[in-house]
């Protein structure tokens, strides 16, 4: 049983957020630049991977997921997994004509 307590105070400095922000801006610049390069079918994959990395940064750092209880991380994984399975099953219809 998790304890009903007022949250633990974790005060990361301001610095880490600036680094995260810098990384996010760099990735945005990167994804906008490589969009001009023609990777063929891979270009969507590259764009999505960069977007996923950015979301990961926002989730763990800005949204404090790394400080939260383990349950929170499991929830996020469940939600993302659910959506992934929906896409896969949906495409079992669309990708086999």
């Amino acid at each position: 049983m998790e304890e009903n307590k007022v949250q633990h105070v974790h005060t990361p400095g301001y610095g880490i957020y600036f680094y995260v922000w810098l990384a996010l801006i760099t990735l945005t610049a990167l994804t906008a630049t490589v969009a001009g390069v023609n990777f063929g079918k891979l270009s969507i994959v590259v764009a999505l991977i960069i977007a996923a990395v950015k979301s990961y940064l926002v989730l763990t750092e800005f949204m404090h997921l790394k400080f939260e209880m383990r349950a929170f991380r499991i929830f996020v994984i469940v939600a993302i997994l659910f959506f992934t399975i929906l896409i896969v099953l949906l495409f079992s219809d669309y990708s086999f004509y």
């Binding site: 399975i85 929906l86 099953l89 079992s92 219809d93 086999f96």
Partner: peptide, 22 residues
Amino acid sequence: GSLVWAHHMFAVGMSNNAEFVF
């Protein structure tokens, strides 16, 4: 239960693979 929705649609002309999976 969240993964079986398309069994309502067997007669609408889905791909055979989808019908099999669902």
